[in-house]
Each structure stands twice: as C-alpha cells, then as structure tokens.
Design a protein around this nucleic acid. Structure first.
Lengths: 233, 233
DNA sequence: GACAATATTATGTAGCTACATATTAATGTA
DNA sequence: TACATTAATATGTAGCTACATAATATTGTC
C-alpha cells in the first residue's frame, strides 16, 4: 500500500482530506479510528493524530472521545484575523501615529455592555473614549468599557499617554474573545470625532474579552471612512 | 522546584505566558531553549514544544530553527472567523434560504481580479453574479470570478440550482485565502439587487483563494444593510 | 579579508509506550 | 422498566528516543 519509509503528518492530512473531497467519506460520515488509519498508511498513530488535529482545527472534521471522528456536515471557511495594536497598524503603513484621550470616567455598566458580557448585574467600569490618529487625521475612534473588578490596575495607568488598547494587550491576556463586525452609516456625532460626512459608510468592530469567567473589556471601534481589514492565510 | 508528577502542556504554556506578562521576558527577548524550560519545569521537551507551538500560533512568541524562541515585539489579537456556506448561515438563523443566479458568462479576467490573484497575464474565467435570499429578502449579493484553468469542472455544474459558493466549498479545497472586509455606501445598482436605499452602509467581504499557486476564485460579497459578522473564540 | 565549505545548534517531526479522559454501551439491581 | 454502576473504547496527553531541517557559527582556502 505504501512505499515511503516515513510519512509526514501533512501528507497524511492531505490524503485524508482528499478522501473526504472525493466523497470516499461524505459529510456526516464516521471516519475510521486513528489506529486503523495508521495501519492503512503504515505510520504511527501519533502521526495520524497530528493530521486529524489539523483537520479538526481547520473545521473539516469533528472529533469526540470515544465518539470518533466525523466529517463535518457544514464545511466552513476559517480565516484568522490578526488585529494588531492600533499604533502598530498605523506605523506599519508608514504613517505618524497619535492618540487622544477624549473622555474617561467610572460608570456603572450599561445594559448594552452587560449584554455583551452576559452579565446579570451591573458592575463598576472605567469608560474610556479615545481617538487614534494617522498623519493627524482620525483613524479609529474607540468607546471602551473596562471592568474595574477584573482590572483594578487600570486606574493607575495614565491613559492620556498610553492607550488602553495598548496597555491591555500588553498586560492582560484573555481566554475568550467575541468579535462583531458590521457597517453603519455615519451619524452627526461620528462626524465630530472622525471628520466623516453624514452618508459615509463606517466600519465598526466590537470586541469583548474575558479571562476565564471574568469580564475584561468591551469596546466599539469605529474606523474612518475607507478603512479596510485585511488578512492573508 | 516542581511538585506535580505530570505537567499538562497547558500549564506549561500558562506559566511561560505569565513570565512574559510579568516581564521576566520582555518583548524581543530570547527565551531559553525548550530543553532548558523542560529541565526547569521538570517535564519532557515535547511538552514544552507543545506549549510553545500554541504560544506561537496565538502570536505571543516567534520561533525559528536554530534561532530559538523570541517574545514577539508586537502582540496581536488573533480571532478566527468562521465563514459558513451562505445557505447554512441563513438556515441557522431559522430563515428560508433561496438562491438566484443573475448572470453567468465566460470572461477574460479584469485588471482588478488579476490584481487580487497577483496575475500578470489575463486568464479565462467564469464570472457568476448571484443573489442569496433569506425569507424572500436579499441577503448577500456575490460577484464571483472562477478560474477555468484551475476549476474546469465548474462548467458542468448547473449554477441555477446550486450556488458556486456551495459547490466550491464542497469540492475545492484551498491552500491560501486572502480576505478583505470593509464598509461601502450603497449605490444605485446595489439598491436594485439588495433593495437597499442610497445612503445605507453596506458590509463588503472580498475573498480570494488559491490551491498551491493556482488561482481558484475571487469574489466580492455585498451584504444587506444590517448584516453582522460574528465570531466567538 | 572575502567567500565557500563544514560543523553546530535549536526547533521540527516520526515513532514508540503508557496512561488519562470522556463518552457510549452493557450490565446489574431494585 | 428505571436508574445507577461498571466496562469498553476512541481520542487526548505525557514521556521517551532518534533523526530531519534550517539557520547560524566556525573553519578552511585562496
């Protein structure tokens, strides 16, 4: 069946993928056990396991202990978005980055923010409104809420100098992240901060993060007209 | 130093991450070799390797053979977008899915499409314009170019019945995918297909895929006003 | 000193064993 | 029959060895 001495896990993965694509195994079908595949390919189970993990990560198959491996019924396109610190995003384009703190205050979490976090009770939060600029022009406006119970240290940070965006990314890892992307027509108040015209289409990114079960931050970032989010993978 | 008999790779990963966050190792610093970490934690090199691979995938560190492991200078937020087949996206919301083929013709690739693919010479492609509907209302309009040299079988597919979106996802794996997301004001021609009003902000997704070096498809999908892209991870 | 050939080194992978874990299937008991 | 207990099973992980690979450092030659 097989000739090569050693098999790379990518070869095994590609072979299995091919079998799925030529419908040797169709959507919803159960695949052979890893051990069986290993015997079939003449490699170790660990190699099949490595291949399977990749297929599971890319959304091609679904694995469950004891349940075995199944071909996913609904193939998905998975793309990894790299969302850098806004400062770096600006600088990488060769532009001069600037940052303005617009407002900052301790508030009780609003209904919308509670919904983002899935909280039932209001919590004290630091609300930070700030503007990121590229070459002296508005780039992204962010309206951010930071949970003071989870991140009390933020009170000691001088947010006129360092953006909350940057401080949080550098000091607070998160275990879960919700992301919502959409388009919205520019309003009156947008035009004040973003210098946009009413009628402009604005790109909005909403991001909410947790560490374990504890809320960290929830923000809405509105980008300047013409902004594009781009990924390669 | 360590008490537990066995160490899970997630524990090791978290320990290393913690050391990076409390600046035991700062941005740009070189981390100890895997073997050293293994000795330090009292675990096997393979366990450290597993942990490191995860940290590299999440963008926390960067690894190079012989070069060792470095803490990334520019931390990024990585989010995985799951882009399902449009039909499934609609059905999952409990809506009735419909599909309309609007136009279909063989054309020479336009300048814009050649740029997307990075091609220097024009190639024959199948251009397919189609509308996805949810509950009889326009959902997403897609303008798609399919490379006939890479995917000749598409000519035999009845695109009035099955969407190119669905056929390609089910039959053509890709090895590379570029994705571009942005907002655009609705135009006259948008309002025809999407029943949008001029002044509406439309969410646009551009996707280009290759298998190896060969172009597969490049498309611009314009969503109805109010559309949101959402991910959890 | 310049540059090619060679050695060194840290990560990457393949193969093996043993055991952990989750989940289903089978069994026992009231 | 209903439900708790136990067994069986496929994937997941940890640890080990050996070798592959890529990138850097060293050496040798002119």
């Amino acid at each position: 069946m097989t000739d090569k001495r050693r098999h790379s896990w990518t070869d095994i993965r590609d072979s299995i993928r091919k079998m799925i694509l030529d419908s040797t195994y169709g959507p919803g079908d159960k695949l052979p056990r890893d051990e069986e595949f290993a015997a079939q390919f003449g490699c170790a189970r660990s190699t099949v396991h490595r291949a399977m993990r990749d297929l599971a990560e890319s959304g091609t198959v679904e694995r469950r202990r004891k349940g075995g491996t199944m071909v996913r019924r609904d193939p998905v396109t998975r793309a990894t978005l790299n969302i850098p610190i806004t400062r770096l995003e600006v600088e990488q384009k060769g532009s001069v980055y600037q940052y303005q703190l617009i407002r900052q205050s301790v508030q009780i979490s609003s209904q919308a923010i509670m919904a983002n976090f899935g909280l039932h009770e209001a919590r004290p939060m630091l609300r930070v409104e700030a503007l990121h600029l590229a070459d002296n022009r508005p780039y992204i406006f962010e309206d951010r809420w930071i949970c003071l119970e989870t991140v009390p240290e933020i009170k000691a940070v001088d947010l006129t100098r360092e953006s909350a965006n940057e401080w949080l990314v550098r000091h607070r890892p998160y275990s879960r992240c919700d992301l919502r992307l959409y388009a919205r027509p520019g309003t009156e108040s947008d035009s004040e901060v973003l210098q946009s015209k009413t009628g402009d289409a604005l790109f909005v990114m909403e991001r909410t993060t947790w560490i374990g079960e504890d809320p960290i931050t929830s923000l809405r970032a509105v980008a300047h007209p013409g902004y594009q989010l781009f990924t390669q993978g």
